[in-house]
Simulated assay, not measured.
Amino acid sequence: MNPLAKNYASRNIRGKLRVCDYMRADSKLREYVPRTVAFNRANLEMMTDRYSAVYVKPDVGSQGIGVCRVRKTEAGYELKTVEGKKQWKAAYETIEALYNRIVKLRRSKLIVQQGIGLDRVKGRPYDIRAMVQRKPGKSWECTGYMVKVGGANKIVTNYYQGGAIYTLRRLEKERGLSSGEGKARKRMMTEVALRIASTLSARRSGMHEMGIDFAFDGAGRLWVLEVNSNHPQFHPLKQLAPKMYYKMQEFAESYGRYSAK
């Protein structure tokens, strides 16, 4: 039996582009969602012309696998991509050559997303996973957070790709944030996370959990990078923050989930 197979009562919304479209349709969420479009040649050219970096991602995927970062350079385009746990880089002179290379790599439907210049800790980019859950018949609650710090020179922050996991408290200490700054950031993420949960669950009944990946850019602006409603993992917290972990597990068990992986 696949230990990651989802066999419990919590429905999900499939597809990153669909999720982004649902969030951008909400006037209160639109400002937090990076521009995201379907992958095709015209959209790839439009996005690389408009933004300093873009990410090409599987519309359905996890663990950072198959993610590409594209940057426009004076000589053309730089492509970095993740295959399995390996990352490699190449350069292309034309959008046509770049597009054809990505097409050869493609194993499923792709999206193109505006790249965000992530804030850094110890010189490494990070994002913050908010776990939002509800017991059957109850309201949504933000049950905890974990910070995903990218591995050295990696274009993704996933734990699977060699990243590290921090608590919010450790992040605040390492970043030199005051207690007030840390509380304000957490309050903002919680408010947006609950709005996202309410908005998406109105589109799809039977949802009980979401892992929402937030990021702050270098200017301190909050962004929503991704929402995972298909078996978001929280097992790294068992050793790092056991009180938070067991709260998430209590909620999970209420809708039939017994594994944090």
Rank of each mutant, 00 (worst) to 15 (best):
R221C: 08
M1S: 09
T36V: 05
M23G: 15
E191K: 15
L240V: 11
R24C: 05
S62M: 01
Y51E: 03
V56P: 01
G84I: 11
T199I: 15
V54D: 00
S108Q: 04
V82E: 01
A197M: 12
G256V: 07
S108H: 12
N158C: 07
I212F: 01
M207R: 08
I95K: 02
R101V: 11
R169A: 14
A38N: 08
A215N: 06
P34N: 10
R14E: 13
R24P: 04
V192D: 13
Y145Q: 04
E172K: 03
N2L: 09
S229Q: 05
H208A: 12
V19M: 15
M47C: 13
R221P: 06
S10P: 00
M46Y: 04
L44W: 01
N2R: 06
A164Y: 05
W223H: 02
V149W: 05
N153F: 04
N40K: 04
A25D: 04
A193T: 14
P136V: 08
M46K: 10
Q233C: 11
E45P: 03
A38F: 02
H235Y: 15
R185Y: 12
A197L: 14
T81P: 00
R204N: 10
L29G: 13
A97I: 02
Q239Y: 12
L222A: 14
I13W: 09
N100A: 15
N43H: 15
S259W: 06
Y8D: 00
R71Q: 03
F216Q: 07
H231Y: 14
